[in-house]
Write a protein that binds this DNA or RNA. Structure first.
Lengths: 328, 328
DNA sequence: CTGAAAGCGCTTACAG
DNA sequence: CTGAAAGCGCTTACAG
């Protein structure tokens, strides 16, 4: 910048202001400066800005595992949202790996490596007190899961209760009366909400908890079968569990949807390919990431204004895996 | 740091050195300083370090789409690799969206937002000259694809040619003589290498190009069928294309592997679930990301030492989708 | 509309 | 083993 100022015969102050536009600069002078900047290929060093302003235009995204498609989509949304506001997005994967990694991400905030954090965990934080303390110093917004134990942190979540209700209503309309819920992990707010929504329609549905993996859908159905459970429909915590359930049912010669209907949650990209086409509740995970990024950046730039949580709409996507209950 | 120095009754110089260990500090003094640091919960602000040293301990990962599982796994590896060396990883998604986003990532290097870049594109860069210019100022390492048009940039890629050969040998051993290659996009080095490897075993295999999506595997098989092509095996550019091919064959009542054998590439997590279990060439995408991160960080910290490219081994994973050619 | 100067929080020769 | 001081590249009151 020194160099530019010298070449243009002005002070660095003026160069800085032509760049930022924070105070009027003579049009001719500004033009000359801009031309020199372009010629020399100058770009301002963020390190200088950061030291002076205290902000580095970087936010973090903490997720359990970035390689899972669910969090990968969230990351994409967050990266896009951040990029649109000229921020960078640092990935903090394996946030649930233990207290040590958890601490590491807090330290990113404390060292000012990042100006704010999007936190998407699928279990409770180890040290709630530290979490609150860090959150009071720099903005944290929760994505995907609200954490009831942490008070009043803004969050961006899907309308999980409505999602559960939509699935229940669809099955009820198809004549189903005995449904099983292959829910996500117990203790998650999203799990609780989806179960509650579903049960407003089908109150006595049995609830089994899995871990969102295909294998858990598979083995929970094995358990069900081994215990002679009697059901005509299954509502799953996500699409992977639904796929596992369908795979296990097929092995047993139980047809989907002729004998048993299956509904998933998420609408992942391969949902249409899971024979016979997975009926599921779509949530917009990319949008969730984008909104969370926007929220946290707004909080960074306007520390005074309160930021309000957002609930994203969900939608039932009807494909082939849920059908009318058979006459038998 | 000023504060710590005052509380400990020493100079900031000494505090800095107890933290960095770059010069000996009296044991007692060091202990006292460390205790005060712990009590006050002090962590050094990276902005200060960055301005002084010119490095911010952040690298970038540029990929076409972070929400694709392939790049998500690479991101996970890169994030882990970076984290192990105390670096942050900034995501630059949609690198192929056009010259504008491409430029944006270069600018991240030029503004020193990032100290180095892992570049994983699935097509040629728009502006090769600028690429080279940027790369000469700050380290760039290519992951997944080497770009022949960019001279002498270090890269981390899989042994694609061996992968192709392994697939070909497996099919040949099973008695196949007429195979189709549903390759990735033309012009990619990985595509060329896999095709070449496969054809060292089965020289006359027809090559069709797709785009790595399930739909392209599906529609290429449609084309094949419509043209009455005669084949007993298909080798695909990745597992998604293989899945699409299997789906299309099933629609036609063509059994896999009884009538046609199918081999994929990657070994994605759902490969075992793609009935009848996908035989595929496994490449370690996570490892690729990790190695690329290590390479670029080494280059950042030792600008003088040359960094050599790496080729990662691949491995044939035999499942159910490839079998002996039928007697008919 | 413009400039001189302070200062953000570190690191690191230089001097002792 | 330790300290005073310069300086990294910006931004922003303050003064004109």
């Amino acid at each position: 910048m020194q160099q530019i100022a010298q070449a243009a015969g002005v002070s660095v102050t003026t160069v800085s202001h032509t760049l930022s536009g924070k105070r009027p600069v003579n049009a001719e002078t500004a033009d000359r400066i801009r031309r020199i900047i372009a010629d020399l290929g100058y770009v301002p060093d963020v390190a200088g800005q950061r030291l002076k302003t205290g902000r580095g235009r970087i936010i973090g995204l903490a997720v359990p595992d970035i390689s899972h498609s669910y969090f990968a989509r969230m990351a994409r949304g967050a990266a896009e949202g951040a990029e649109a506001l000229d921020y960078g997005l640092i990935i903090c994967s394996s946030v649930n790996a233990g207290p040590r990694t958890e601490k590491r991400y807090f330290n990113m905030l404390r060292t000012r490596l990042i100006d704010g954090l999007i936190y998407s965990a699928n279990r409770e934080v180890t040290d709630g007190d530290e979490f609150s303390r860090v959150a009071s110093a720099r903005p944290i917004v929760l994505a995907d899961e609200s954490l009831p134990s942490i008070d009043h942190l803004p969050s961006v979540v899907s309308d999980n209760e409505t999602g559960g209700r939509l699935a229940g209503e669809h099955l009820a309309a198809l004549g189903h009366r005995r449904a099983i819920i292959l829910a996500g992990p117990a203790g998650l707010q999203s799990t609780t909400d989806r179960v509650r929504g579903f049960r407003t329609v089908m109150p006595n549905s049995l609830v089994l908890h899995g871990d969102f993996e295909t294998t858990s859908g598979y083995s929970l159905v094995s358990d069900l079968l081994a215990n002679g459970a009697d059901f005509t429909a299954i509502f799953c915590g996500n699409d992977y569990m639904a796929w596992g359930a369908i795979l296990r049912l097929a092995e047993e010669g139980i047809r989907v949807p002729a004998d048993v209907s299956v509904i998933g949650f998420d609408d992942i990209d391969i949902a249409p390919l899971i024979a016979p086409g997975l009926t599921t509740v779509r949530q917009d995970t990319t949008q969730m990431g984008r909104r969370a990024a926007e929220l946290v950046i707004r909080a960074i730039e306007h520390r005074d204004e309160p930021i309000e949580s957002q609930v994203l709409p969900v939608e039932l996507v009807v494909r082939g895996s849920a059908g009318a209950v058979s006459a038998s």
